[in-house]
Design a protein around this nucleic acid. Structure first.
Lengths: 231, 231
DNA sequence: CGGACTTTTGAAGTAATTCAAGGGGAGTGG
DNA sequence: CCACTCCCCTTGAATTACTTCAAAAGTCCG
């Protein structure tokens, strides 16, 4: 938690990558730290977009909930990623909620500080463009999958994406490194927890995955990729 | 087509809004003009991201096609909007195709010029952030709809969005101001042209809409909104 | 007026949801 | 340590919204 390691960390985040040391120092001075326990809400849907966070440790879930209470998981956020992008695009309010999945350690800034920073440093603004562009591309891919693929294939894609961003090698295979229920997978794949459960049971019989309570381990990634590519 | 009106036009686009006159003049000097006939391809999926266009007149369709040939319409682009956003986020290639729906008039720039512009003028970079942010939000909404709503409701939302961005008052109601087939609506709503046709027929009987060959007129917008909000 | 494209509509088929009930782990409190 | 309780997960059966298949009817344009 010393200053130098903090600076290194900031310099590796998607938003501040490439910034010179003195700028990073300035950014660090303007920041505040916050911790959230698993399950705590970081940002509520509809809140005014006043604060931007960067994840230091732990994992967040970004969701959107409809009027009738149905939830969609937009993405998970890990170390180095930003939470509260509405601040960057100067939206009035946060379009979704952000909740801690793990115990989390975040650092944050007032929105006005970030806006100012982007105005004065094109590098930060360009990083913001790239970062939002990457998310835009990602959600386009999901939209395409949801429009054109059947559930099993979508679920395979969903799990492979999670493995890519939070996979951890273990004896049994690659484990997704945070708790993840059937309901969560359903809300990411556009289906119901029942269908997810049935599909995973089928895969488990074939030795593709090894699941438990809020735990998913991919035992045979190539075969899962084959399902995703529908061969 | 005189210089001054061009400058005014550039100053009203989503990317160059708020730029001072001398910068606009510089931007104008670096631009080239191109015309495309209805049906012509402006950008092919997978092309290297070398050129950015802004629509002056006419309308473009941005799509993504899967390996097995299924197409999804990501959005329609009208006057003032940019085509080829990959250039902004410095992507390697264009993630989708762009085709002229109408006869179109575009102006374009080399990607390197735009990259340079964003570096030197934080205003342009911030406009880019806002613009991509708006598209990101838009596609998030569609993802949520696709995940949680049934076809009829999704189709209502799709049509209302098109009305908002390209609606034109006529005697019969609000007409969507460009040719739009049942297949197109299907590719925007995540369904088949058959289901779209049946749904529109139903609405037509109830006096909600008034459709023709590649033409959609909304006769009763409030009722269509009621369907979209599922009352 | 021929031919291509778009749209409509019926009928059959199916993937996935919904409904329903029960089973099992993990943590808590006695 | 055991029992209790809360989640989370599983699985069958019934239902349904939508797709797929198939054919025909419009509509526009050269």
């Amino acid at each position: 938690m010393d200053d130098q390691s903090d600076l290194d960390m900031l310099g590796r985040t998607e938003l501040f990558r490439g910034a010179p040391a003195d700028l990073l120092r300035d950014i660090q001075r303007a920041a505040f730290r916050r911790r959230f326990a698993a399950g705590e809400t970081v940002i509520r849907q509809g809140d005014p977009a006043a604060t931007l966070y960067i994840v230091i440790a732990g994992r967040l879930r970004a969701t959107q909930t409809t009027l009738d209470g149905q939830q969609v998981i937009m993405r998970y956020l890990g170390p180095g990623q930003i939470a509260g992008y509405a601040v960057l695009v100067d939206g009035e309010t946060h379009p979704g909620a952000i909740v801690a999945v793990d115990d989390c350690h975040l650092i944050g800034w007032k929105g006005s500080y970030i806006g100012d920073l982007m105005c004065r440093h094109a590098l930060v603004a360009m990083n913001a463009v790239r970062l939002i562009g990457a998310r835009y591309l990602d959600v386009q891919v999901r939209l395409r999958e949801l429009s054109t693929e059947k559930v099993e294939r979508r679920l395979a894609h969903t799990i492979l994406r999670l493995v890519a961003q939070a996979g951890r090698r273990t004896a049994r295979g690659i484990e997704i490194a945070f708790p993840l229920s059937r309901q969560d997978l359903a809300e990411m794949s556009g289906t119901t927890l029942h269908t997810v459960s049935r599909t995973l049971s089928g895969w488990e019989e074939r030795g593709l995955v090894d699941c438990g309570r809020r735990r998913v381990v991919v035992a045979n990634a190539p075969l899962l990729e084959a399902i995703a590519e529908q061969e």
